[in-house]
């Protein structure tokens, strides 16, 4: 099936040039080559003295950005969205404060939302535009909006990173959080690279199932041929399909 250009910018068409995911919960399962499941990814390109400060999630993001050679694309913005940041660290620090203990400077330094991208930027000497987002459960929608802004301004491609991580047990009654950390990286553009996947939005109608929080495992299933993705803000039904022929017709 061909991807049809759509005049209505409210119903965007994007191209997914490449993607990679980290899903440790699927270790031992049959996953495609672009999905890694190591509990603690190696992040071989990050110097050991920087790597020691990364959680498994941070190591996964650096591993996959390295595999995708993002640092060789010095004009490609990198956007990282996550609802709860990098694991327990920020919330554990609240406990430390409550107990009247001094905070660990290293953990404090790495508890900010853009910490993973900061370490990545130092390790790979990549000075491209980078931003960290949080959007109360609508992180993927926020990533798409931000990415479309960069693409509209003329960027060839944008790297999207969505990560998710568990919160400590005592917070689980207050918020939806997964049992396992996960990450997905998607390189998007407005025109297809060879073997790109077309991501096409359609208006969602009233018969659509209720929108759910979009997580890395859900996106992986979608890209592996699962059912359409329903985004919340704006409400859109996203379809993903292979681009069969990128040659302009006649």
């Amino acid at each position: 099936m061909d991807c049809l250009p759509h005049a209505d910018t409210a119903l965007p068409t994007l191209y997914l040039n490449r993607w990679r995911a980290w899903l440790p919960e699927r270790a031992g399962e049959d996953v495609p080559a672009c999905v890694i499941t190591d509990e603690k990814p190696p992040a071989p390109s990050v110097p050991a003295l920087l790597r020691r400060r990364l959680t498994p999630l941070g190591r996964a993001v650096c591993t996959l950005l390295g595999e995708m050679s993002a640092h060789e694309r010095t004009t490609m913005p990198i956007l990282h969205a996550s609802r709860h940041g990098d694991g327990h660290r920020p919330l554990d620090m609240l406990d430390t404060l409550f107990e009247g203990e001094p905070l660990s400077p290293a953990r404090f330094g790495l508890s900010v939302h853009n910490a993973v991208l900061g370490v990545y930027s130092i390790a790979f000497d990549n000075h491209a535009s980078m931003a960290a987002l949080a959007a109360a459960g609508e992180e993927f929608e926020a990533l798409l909006s931000e990415a479309r802004g960069y693409l509209a301004e003329g960027c060839d491609s944008v790297m999207l990173i969505l990560t998710d991580s568990p919160v400590p047990e005592r917070y689980r009654i207050q918020t939806q959080a997964p049992q396992h950390p996960s990450a997905i990286l998607m390189e998007l553009s407005l025109s297809p690279a060879p073997d790109a996947v077309c991501l096409q939005a359609r208006a969602a109608d009233t018969t659509d199932e209720p929108a759910q929080t979009i997580t890395p495992p859900l996106l992986t299933d979608w890209l592996m041929g699962g059912s359409d993705l329903i985004a919340r803000t704006p409400v859109l039904r996203w379809q993903a399909f292979e681009v069969m022929d990128t040659t302009p017709a006649g």
């Binding site: 003295l49 001094p102 660990s104 400077p105 290293a106």
Partner: peptide
Amino acid sequence: LGLDSIDALELGLALQ
């Protein structure tokens, strides 16, 4: 060993 300024702060805390 190649430690940095954040490590110096962390070591100060550990000594304490």
